[in-house]
Amino acid sequence: MNNEYWYECYGFPVRVTADPAVTAVLADAFGPVLADPDRHRHAAGPVVRLSVAVVNSDAPAVEPPHNPGVLKADIITIDAGASRATVDPARWTVELTLARRDLADPVVWGRWMLERIFLYLVCRSPRHYPMHAGGLQVGGRTALVCGPTGMGKSTFTTWAMRRGATLLGEDIMVRHLDDPPGVFWGYPYAVYLAPELLDGHPQLAQAPRAAVDGGAKYRVTVPAAVHQRTGSVAEVDATVVLNRGADEIRRREFDDVVEQWRDDYAAGKDDPDVIAEIEADLRRCLADRPIWELSASADLDAAHDLVLKTVFTGS
């Protein structure tokens, strides 16, 4: 008999009907159960309905394609060999089948399946959009940390958590247009780190990890013992845009950096009116809040201290 659970993911209430065999996977993927779904901030908005079945299969796991053609299908199929998901963006429903052996592989159920499922739902919705960013909170102040793939968002945000920050997300932050300006939602239950950096994270030393990109990075499940250092809702006070170089930080204007974000917030959106509404919303969210460009070297402590002094304490 299937079990029913309620979770929150990127601000969405998620109603899960699942085979009991996936209980541990759900806890690792979504964190604590949603205590009172009726009182969740977006209880009146879209509810993601996720059903999870388990099958026995020896078919090899194969990374599914991840491209604009997949994203724009009316019904999105994510096919990883034995494990498979069918996503109906219009109905906010997902049917996920996991091979029993894939339950022990967070790359399959996490990176290839659940993380893509929620990204696709956000990209296809006219009332939601993603930012390629992480989120940090220090001393009651919150910053988005933006940058293209490979710029070090995961590295920087996770290092900041090691130094005492609250991690709100490490790669994608989601905006609900019905929220007050400046509110974004993150996913703090998995981080992606190069293997040499894991030695510097004692709080993640025993965390489950799985190699991705041929071992260039690991997908690391943030353990329950560290959840008190995480959150999901970010009420943004400032934005940090990562760059490479000597350790220095300078102010930028919104119009100088908004084009860097266009491919992110417009992903999956074909209607020019929808994109224009999103651009206007992003301006309301960020244009009147400080935007800093951080040029950072490989010295993570120096970069962290610079951001702490400039962005979070204002000294």
Score class of each variant (00 low, 15 high):
residue 237 D to Y: 02
residue 207 A to C: 09
residue 43 A to E: 07
residue 313 T to H: 06
residue 127 R to T: 15
residue 27 A to G: 15
residue 182 G to W: 01
residue 15 R to G: 05
residue 230 T to Q: 01
residue 220 V to Q: 00
residue 126 P to W: 12
residue 53 A to N: 07
residue 47 V to P: 09
residue 108 V to L: 12
residue 203 Q to W: 09
residue 139 G to A: 11
residue 12 F to V: 15
residue 23 T to E: 09
residue 235 E to K: 02
residue 309 K to E: 09
residue 33 V to E: 15
residue 113 M to W: 14
residue 1 M to D: 10
residue 6 W to S: 07
residue 232 S to Y: 15
residue 315 S to A: 11
residue 282 L to T: 03
residue 72 K to P: 06
residue 185 W to P: 02
residue 228 Q to H: 14
residue 103 L to Q: 01
residue 283 R to I: 04
residue 279 E to S: 10
residue 287 A to L: 00
residue 124 R to D: 05
residue 303 A to G: 02
residue 192 Y to M: 13
residue 216 A to R: 15
residue 177 L to N: 10
residue 32 P to W: 14
residue 3 N to G: 12
residue 227 H to N: 05
residue 179 D to R: 10
residue 215 G to E: 10
residue 135 G to V: 00
residue 230 T to A: 01
residue 40 H to Q: 06
residue 155 T to W: 02
residue 140 G to Y: 09
residue 20 P to V: 05
residue 4 E to N: 13
residue 76 I to L: 07
residue 54 V to A: 07
residue 109 W to S: 10
residue 133 A to N: 10
residue 207 A to Y: 12
residue 178 D to H: 03
residue 311 V to R: 01
residue 154 S to L: 10
residue 278 I to C: 02
residue 213 D to Y: 00
residue 101 R to G: 11
residue 275 I to N: 03
residue 289 R to F: 07
residue 103 L to Y: 04
residue 227 H to S: 03
residue 305 D to G: 11
residue 96 L to H: 05
residue 286 L to F: 14
residue 42 H to V: 06
residue 72 K to G: 13
residue 2 N to H: 11
residue 7 Y to F: 15
residue 149 T to N: 14
residue 134 G to T: 10
residue 309 K to A: 11
residue 201 H to I: 06
residue 55 V to E: 11
residue 85 A to V: 08
residue 105 D to T: 10
residue 22 V to S: 00
residue 115 E to W: 10
residue 250 R to V: 06
residue 277 E to V: 08
residue 108 V to Y: 11
residue 27 A to Y: 03
residue 88 D to Y: 05
residue 117 I to V: 15
residue 14 V to M: 13
residue 15 R to P: 05
residue 90 A to Y: 12
residue 19 D to F: 08
residue 180 P to H: 03
residue 84 R to M: 14
residue 315 S to D: 11
residue 202 P to A: 00
residue 304 H to C: 05
residue 299 D to A: 03
residue 206 Q to T: 15
residue 91 R to E: 06
residue 90 A to V: 11
residue 2 N to R: 11
residue 172 I to K: 02
residue 18 A to T: 08
residue 145 V to Q: 04
residue 191 V to P: 02
residue 122 V to A: 04
residue 304 H to L: 09
residue 230 T to F: 00
residue 155 T to F: 02
residue 257 V to F: 07
residue 303 A to N: 04
residue 149 T to E: 13
residue 23 T to G: 12
residue 40 H to W: 06
residue 177 L to M: 13
residue 39 R to T: 15
residue 148 P to K: 13
residue 162 R to Q: 10
residue 45 G to T: 13
residue 121 L to C: 00
residue 88 D to E: 12
residue 37 P to C: 00
residue 236 V to R: 14
residue 52 V to M: 06
residue 287 A to I: 00
residue 78 I to L: 12
residue 236 V to Y: 08
residue 215 G to S: 07
residue 7 Y to G: 07
residue 136 L to H: 02
residue 160 A to F: 05
residue 164 G to Y: 05
residue 246 A to G: 14
residue 83 S to P: 01
residue 254 F to L: 08
residue 15 R to A: 11
residue 31 G to Y: 06
residue 167 L to F: 01
residue 271 D to S: 04
residue 224 A to R: 11
residue 174 V to Y: 09
residue 169 G to D: 03
residue 87 V to I: 15
residue 286 L to W: 13
residue 152 G to H: 01
residue 253 E to N: 08
residue 246 A to L: 08
residue 258 V to G: 08
residue 73 A to E: 12
